[in-house]
Design a protein around this nucleic acid. Sequence first.
DNA 1: CGCTGGTTTGAAGGTCGTCAAGAAGGGTGG
DNA 2: CCACCCTTCTTGACGACCTTCAAACCAGCG
Lengths: 242, 242
Amino acid sequence: MTAAAFDNILARRLNTFVALSRKELKVLGELQKNPFRAQRGQLLLQEGQPDPKVFILQTGWGYGYKVLPNGSRQIISLALAGDLAGMRSVFLRKADHSFSLLTDTTINVLEREHIMSCVAEFPRLRAALLWAASRDAAMVVEHLANIGRRNALERTAHFFLELAERMRLIGGRTRTKFECPLSQFVLADALGLTSIHVNRTLRQLRERKILTVRNGIVTIHDLGSLRKVARLGAETFESSEI
Amino acid sequence: MTAAAFDNILARRLNTFVALSRKELKVLGELQKNPFRAQRGQLLLQEGQPDPKVFILQTGWGYGYKVLPNGSRQIISLALAGDLAGMRSVFLRKADHSFSLLTDTTINVLEREHIMSCVAEFPRLRAALLWAASRDAAMVVEHLANIGRRNALERTAHFFLELAERMRLIGGRTRTKFECPLSQFVLADALGLTSIHVNRTLRQLRERKILTVRNGIVTIHDLGSLRKVARLGAETFESSEI
DNA sequence: CGCTGGTTTGAAGGTCGTCAAGAAGGGTGG
DNA sequence: CCACCCTTCTTGACGACCTTCAAACCAGCG
């Protein structure tokens, strides 16, 4: 395998789980030929839509969400560079959630058939793709527990810990400082709070010198305290590899 | 295809999504040979455990959950007769949640290899199993939106609507009356509330003659009002097939 | 310079959690 | 058959957390 074979973001990601064959790496590379630019705010997937696509984010941020009949919005998951979004909907043949862009991005759009034939023909690629889809689902599960059983402060702390870990994996600036284009409105819809309460919660974290969010940059001043606030067993983010 | 070919609970379920071949039905039947009895309270899957199994519930109720460092519990999903539990963990090769039994059950235990070889060898069975796994994930997503963006009353109403629909699909007594072995403690952990507040919420539903829970039996007296309370667009549960 | 999108703050009130304790079953053993 | 568990349900009082409403502030940009 040449170094160049890994030279696409998704292959690098999937390789952390299973070693892919030369042929499989090539297939992944071809799927990511000619990504295109898409703009902030664009709706890529609408809940209920038939024949949904899968998206590979090369750069930028996206988010999956649901809009309730009463008009409120719940953000289900964030998609970062290297993420594969929309696998669940493809398997369902119908979008169970909407997906939009938080920033300008470069993305690839994959048809259902692309995914299905990868899954059908290449054993290790199948394992890798199902792993990736399951990992996303596991993050939703974690998110559910976070919202269901933690108060605003713990919840927010936990959210940023998870985000910091994800940013680290894709090579953010450092472990404790990274870009984050989430407005307090977006944070509120992700955390199941109001933006006003998010503001107060962030103020508290700032005043306690634990974490600041300014100009779209998150800085963690005190990782230990942040973990304590999130009431983790402290080791959860040390060792976990999923 | 003989009628007998459908004579296993999982085949009947999966067939609602894709028509399976004779051979595939046979494979599914073999997976469900010799189910065994397991008792209420038994832990079948522990979060973090390697080499997790998949379970097919023939009868009874199970539930997936997470326990947080602070000791509280969030129930992620319920498993009813005919459900396939633990697919996500199998794809991850590590349990991302725990799974226990709410009632005595009869179940089958499937090894990872069983699942993986079904997915590898049989195209339509693959589509069906991935659909089933995605459907479970979609229910978690719905659950997340429910907890994140609805208050206790709306949330509880929505929960019972979903449950009623699932019970109907597997042939509960009627559309508006079904058995439900969930204590208020369990409901609380599912809904992200305290059992005391669940009690107050159920009282309200009872006093408004919308729904009663007694002796493990749920009776919906006024389906229209229940939908209104859950703030659905009213049609969501009429047509949706997912 | 005014507009727009986002942040910040205050005040007031409702939802929901906490604490405490009583009531209603269902099972077990005397 | 009754006494005594246990678990589950039920209720009240109180306060904290979070939302709602209202408004000021700030930065970037046409």
